[in-house]
């Protein structure tokens, strides 16, 4: 039994190690993004509310020109600390053409908290046509689509790291000897170093409502946090519940361990066996 335990353990470690390597499409043919600290990572991960609010501002003022976020409803901005009136004020800025008047003509109406962030383009073709043939991806699950989780912490790339890297990874000119296709931009972190999106952020491009200096690093960090919330709004609730569940299960398992021990106590060593009957 002791021998098998060690081997079993070894097998588990080997398995976990093997499971974790594997190509990450986001960083193939490009540099590996640096790691940053986020309040959301780790067992006690929490959302950084002020950063999320700033990130929302970056999204609505910069990114939303090209990137949709179809699955995020205004009412969910409650997670960012906004109250009902503030959310109504945000929603009412947008117009939706989805109702008909009595003549059957499409009419527009102002947004309500139940509505979702509207897409900047009517359909995929319109989006591609306005962006040189490339489709700006939807933000709703993008952070999760760009993450690479590994058993080894140093190999893990969170989607946030990738976004921050991408935003700060532009070069004014491609390096000597690199053939950059017309219409693309050189970026250290995009596949094959050439991305169709022009650098979207410049220092002080946005004036933060809370007065934080809007450097490119700050804006990319905030928008990455915001996108992480958009991709996984239940993260904090999940980790908080996880802590309670696992602590409870540890207690229950300890109780079950001693229960099991007590149940077996009188026969574990064969005290009930009558050797003369064997």
């Amino acid at each position: 039994m002791k021998n098998i335990n060690i081997k079993g353990l070894l097998a588990t470690i080997v398995t976990a190690a093997l499971l974790s390597s594997g190509a990450n499409a986001a960083t193939e043919g490009a540099m590996h993004p640096e790691k940053h600290d986020y309040t959301s990572t780790g067992i006690f991960g929490k959302f950084d509310i002020p950063s999320l609010q700033r990130g929302l501002q970056v999204y609505t003022e910069v990114c939303a020109a090209c990137h949709s976020m179809d699955l995020v409803a205004f009412r969910t901005l409650e997670d960012l600390g906004y109250n009902e009136d503030e959310i109504k004020a945000i929603a009412i800025e947008y117009e939706y053409e989805d109702t008909f008047d009595d003549d059957g003509e499409l009419i527009s109406r102002p947004g309500t908290p139940a509505d979702y962030f509207p897409a900047p383009f009517a359909n995929e073709k319109a989006a591609r046509s306005a962006n040189g043939g490339s489709l700006p991806p939807d933000f709703s699950t993008l952070i999760k689509a760009r993450e690479h989780l590994s058993f080894f912490p140093w190999a893990t790339v969170y989607g946030e790291d990738y976004v921050v890297a991408l935003m700060t990874g532009y070069h004014d000119e491609a390096p000597e000897g690199f053939e950059l296709t017309e219409g693309l931009y050189y970026n250290d972190y995009f596949t094959d170093y050439a991305i169709a999106m022009a650098p979207p952020l410049f220092d002080d491009f946005v004036e933060y409502a809370d007065g934080t200096p809007a450097t490119v690093e700050q804006m990319s960090y905030d928008v990455a946090n915001f996108m992480a919330w958009a991709s996984d709004p239940t993260m904090q609730e999940r980790k908080e519940m996880g802590l309670r569940v696992i602590l409870f299960m540890i207690v229950l398992s300890i109780l079950l361990y001693f229960t099991n021990k007590r149940v077996w106590r009188k026969i574990k060593k064969g005290q009930d066996i009558d050797p003369s009957q064997l």
Binding site: F248, V251, L252, L255, L256, F258, T259, R262
Partner: peptide
């Protein structure tokens, strides 16, 4: 012990 375990 059994009662505590059962309750948990």
């Amino acid at each position: 012990l059994y009662i505590a375990t059962g309750a948990a």
